[in-house]
């Protein structure tokens, strides 16, 4: 094993990144399991000591989830109802021990098609803040993830935060995950929905589906069709063809593609049922 570096500042970390190829380590929940050799090869850059990186806070433009923030941090954070789906997902990431160690940023960098964190972040219009010696850049999460286990992250870059724009922290949200057993399970299908209602009409809606394609996806066409429609009867206006056309599920040992397609529709209807019920006058 090479050097194990634990910089205190982001500048220092970016300097190291610019200097040499490194393996970035945070919660290590995937890194440990994915490493087959006796030790990690090359230099390891531990980002958990970087000042300010483990912080969830709001600023003038929106919310910022620092790259070293764990799932347990998300669960504990004081966040508006739009983030409820992210908190629900946080509770489904592995076990409590994994949630204590694993980071939100790690979940997206790992880029599993079944990453529990991705659908809710997509439905929050999350952007990924990327740091590099030459200066930062920001990429929408939907563009950050390119394929299973692949992202746009270049050598010399690291994720520094996930940003949720101000306009997207509105409304209520729900996450639902379907697995073969009750706990400690990889998703067969999951959905995350955020619904912003104004005067009985859908002002904004964000719907995402995970584990039904190489990367999780927003259902843009369906959202477009639902935006501006009355809240009453919303779940009945889900158009299965607009969902199906956005998904490319595969058959694997967990479920068939056909099952996933159908289950996605049902899960979406349910979370919308839930959200609609919540907003309806009693």
């Amino acid at each position: 094993m090479g050097a194990y570096l634990q910089p205190d500042t982001l500048d220092e970390a970016l300097g190291i990144l610019a200097r040499e190829p490194v393996t970035i380590a945070a919660g290590c929940t995937d890194l440990f399991a994915a490493t087959e050799s006796q030790s990690l090869n090359g230099t390891v850059l531990d980002v958990t000591r970087i000042e300010g990186l483990r912080r969830i806070a709001k600023d003038a433009t929106g919310w910022r989830i620092g790259a070293a923030s764990t799932w347990s941090d998300v669960i504990a954070a004081d966040l508006p109802p739009a983030f409820d789906m992210l908190k629900q997902a946080a509770r489904e990431v592995g076990s409590v021990q994994i949630q204590n160690a694993g980071t939100v940023a790690g979940n997206i960098c790992n880029a599993s098609p079944a990453a529990d964190g991705v659908p809710p972040l997509l439905s929050l219009d999350a952007h990924v803040e990327i740091g590099a010696k030459g200066g930062p850049r920001e990429v929408p999460l939907a563009e950050f993830l390119t394929a299973p286990r692949a992202t746009v992250l270049m050598p010399g870059e690291m994720v520094t935060a996930i940003r949720i724009p101000d306009v997207s922290d509105k409304g209520e949200s729900r996450f639902s995950k379907l697995g073969a057993r009750k706990y400690l399970v990889i998703s067969i299908v999951m959905v995350a929905a955020r619904l912003h209602v104004q005067d009985g009409f859908v002002r904004d809606i964000a719907l995402s589906v995970g584990a039904c394609g190489p990367v999780a996806t927003r259902l843009a066409a369906l959202e477009e069709a639902l935006r501006g429609t009355p809240l009453a009867g919303l779940p009945d206006r889900l158009q299965p063809d607009l969902i199906a056309s956005a998904l490319t599920p595969i058959t694997d040992m967990r479920a068939s593609d056909e099952y996933r397609r159908e289950a996605a529709v049902h899960l979406l209807r349910r979370v919308l049922d839930d959200l609609t019920l919540m907003r309806s006058p009693v």
């Binding site: 057993r181 009750k182 706990y183 400690l184 399970v185 990889i186 040992m253």
Partner: peptide, 16 residues
């Protein structure tokens, strides 16, 4: 074997 670990080879958890 495609699922030679306890994440892939499922046994019931308490909640099941």
């Amino acid at each position: 074997p495609l699922n030679a670990d306890l994440a892939g080879y499922h046994v019931p958890v308490n909640a099941d």
